[in-house]
């Protein structure tokens, strides 16, 4: 198991380097940054000065090494808009977004796993059909619209929740429901199909033939097998939720990293965008890594196949 973790962390590390390079290259994707910074009234001489000041005249690999070296020391550059180090604004915002993501994720699992299991256990009954409807609505409804719907319901018609902000836990309820419901359908449908397959296997038949209690057959013998693909998809869904947080944070005026990303793009605040892309990518790489390790822990075949390879 330890060997597996080490191998996977090695490949995660390589992935991180690649991702950070792509994040770095973003600054050039939008055209010559020096010209952009000099502004419309800036002369060629201004641009040249800026180029020299920010080191844009150096070879790209040197710039990258310089940038990544600084990033490793926690220096993500200077925001062009806030006139502050990016790291000073970023980590606070990132914390808010991760908290929102985590609560939403827990909410997503809390509805999708039980519903998926129940839909498989009572396949083709009203329970299954209800779960399907819940999933289709979640999949089809745009998050911003669902968010507004909730605001109308619980802040206007029946004012029990605040409309915007991120001061108390009550501010997080509606955003988490919106984001969680966005992530839940994929997890639910996969849980359902995995459980249906697992319940038809020979080993579940064996467990029944040996009189293992039906509840245990369902929640231990079948679920442990069905949940393996769900883990990978859940990690991906968590990533999508971070992307979705851009919309949700805007609607609910939450000061998170998603909203910061959106605003920074509008302001052409490239160092901030760069840093955000890097952070989101790293989170994604870490999520994939955690999912891999979790899967290896759940499935002994994966662990040992990897050790043998």
């Amino acid at each position: 198991m330890l060997r597996f973790v080490l191998r996977r962390s090695g490949s995660a590390l390589i992935l991180m380097v690649v991702v950070s390079f792509v994040a770095f290259m973003l600054i050039f994707a939008a055209g010559d940054p020096a010209v952009k910074l000099a502004g419309e009234a800036g002369s060629a001489a201004d641009a040249a000065r800026i180029r020299a000041f920010y080191g844009f005249d150096q070879p790209i690999y040197l710039q990258f090494l310089h940038w990544i070296g600084a990033a490793l020391h926690g220096n993500l550059g200077h925001s062009l808009y806030f006139d502050q180090p990016v790291s000073a604004i970023l980590f606070d915002r990132l914390g808010t977004t991760l908290l929102l993501g985590l609560v939403s994720f827990i909410f997503a699992l809390a509805i999708s796993l039980p519903l998926g299991i129940a839909a498989a256990r009572w396949q083709n009954t009203w329970i299954d059909r209800t779960a399907l409807i819940v999933a289709v609505i979640g999949q089809a409804m745009p998050t911003f619209w669902f968010a507004l719907l909730l605001v109308v319901m619980f802040s206007v018609i029946w004012p029990i929740l605040p409309t915007s902000g991120s001061e108390t836990w009550r501010h997080f309820i509606m955003p988490s429901v919106v984001l969680g419901y966005f992530a839940a359908p994929a997890i639910m449908r996969l849980t359902r199909s995995g459980m249906i397959l697992a319940l038809e296997t020979d080993y579940v038949r064996t467990a029944r033939a040996l009189g293992i209690a039906p509840r245990k057959v369902l929640l231990k013998y079948a679920l442990r097998n069905a949940v393996i693909p769900v883990v990978s998809v859940s990690a991906a869904q968590f990533g999508y939720m971070l992307a979705g947080s851009v919309v949700v944070e805007s609607v609910f005026a939450i000061n998170g990293a998603g909203r910061l990303a959106w605003e920074s793009i509008l302001r052409s605040d490239l160092p901030t965008v760069q840093a955000l892309v890097l952070c989101f990518s790293l989170i994604y790489v870490i999520l994939t890594f955690v999912a891999d390790v979790l899967n290896a822990w759940l499935d002994p075949r994966m662990r040992l196949a990897d050790a043998r390879a």
């Binding site: 296997t201 020979d202 080993y203 579940v204 038949r205 064996t206 467990a207 013998y221 442990r224 097998n225 393996i228 759940l298 499935d299 002994p300 075949r301």
Partner: peptide
Amino acid sequence: MTSLNPVF
């Protein structure tokens, strides 16, 4: 080959 649960 398939009658025993692979994950336990």
